[in-house]
């Protein structure tokens, strides 16, 4: 069945696949994970703040975004972001935004919802006494959160955050629908151009598998470590 399997096509495409495609994919994954965690933490703090209307706003945002398919959100943002930017700076016409940046904004805002649920669980899992002790020592809300709660919540939840980042890594393949030059996009384009889709898609699947599998094994090992600390 592999009699006319053309490995040369893959070898020729390697530099383009990895230096451009995989770099795009990894950059998008890492930056979106960082911004998503930051925004997610803000959402989690809002939800737990008990200060009307912050929990309601954050809750509505989380539930709203969670009920939409990522693809629909990608399409929304791709067309909307230039208009939003126009409103923001009061420009007379829509502002062109780099497709990578659009994708980054989309994934950060979308994945923040999932990161916020993780951070919320992390914060709630800490004994209430810690917060009370912090206040008793005269620390402010910001100090309690920054010095006591968030570092612990973040450390305890690190394996789950990383697992979500692996999901995010796989989700970035969806920018294929916008013809961006991520790893899958480039594999598809080369496959179509050279009439070698079979080879390119198998190779892409293999690469995604190896990276996700290796990463999730690493997370599992990390989990075993952090479990002891708790």
């Amino acid at each position: 069945m592999f009699s006319n399997f053309d490995f040369q096509v893959i070898i020729d495409a390697l530099p383009y696949l990895f230096l451009q495609g995989m770099v795009f994919t990894l950059k998008l994954t890492l930056l979106a994970a960082i911004f998503g965690t930051i925004f997610g933490t803000v959402l989690a703090l809002m939800r737990l703040s008990g200060v009307w209307p912050l929990p309601q706003i954050a809750g509505a945002y989380v539930n709203f975004v969670r009920s939409l398919p990522l693809l629909l959100v990608i399409f929304w943002f791709f067309f909307l972001v230039p208009f939003i930017a126009q409103k923001m700076v009061g420009s007379p016409r829509p502002i062109p935004i780099d497709p990578f940046l659009t994708a980054l904004i989309t994934f950060s805002l979308f994945e923040a919802v999932f990161f916020s649920e993780i951070m919320r669980a992390g914060i709630q899992s800490l004994p209430k006494g810690q917060v009370a002790a912090g206040y008793a020592l005269g620390l402010s809300y910001t100090q309690v959160m920054r010095r006591i709660v968030l570092p612990q919540a973040f450390r305890n939840m690190l394996p789950v955050l990383l697992t979500q980042t692996i999901v995010l890594f796989q989700d970035t393949s969806l920018v294929y629908v916008l013809s961006l030059n991520d790893f899958l996009g480039i594999a598809g384009k080369i496959g179509q151009r050279d009439g070698r889709l079979t080879e390119m898609y198998i190779f892409a699947a293999l690469v995604y598998f190896l990276i996700s599998f290796a990463a999730s094994q690493a997370v599992r090992r990390l989990q075993a470590h952090t479990a002891i600390i708790r």
């Binding site: 796989q170 989700d171 393949s173 969806l174 294929y176 899958l184 598809g188 889709l197 079979t198 898609y201 198998i202 892409a204 699947a205 995604y208 598998f209 996700s212 599998f213 999730s216």
Partner: peptide, 17 residues
């Protein structure tokens, strides 16, 4: 296998490959 390959790529595997 099914957890570590993006859904989109899985559909391409079934459909094109």
């Amino acid at each position: 296998f099914f957890r570590n390959i993006p859904l989109l790529v899985q559909l391409f595997l079934w459909y094109f490959v």
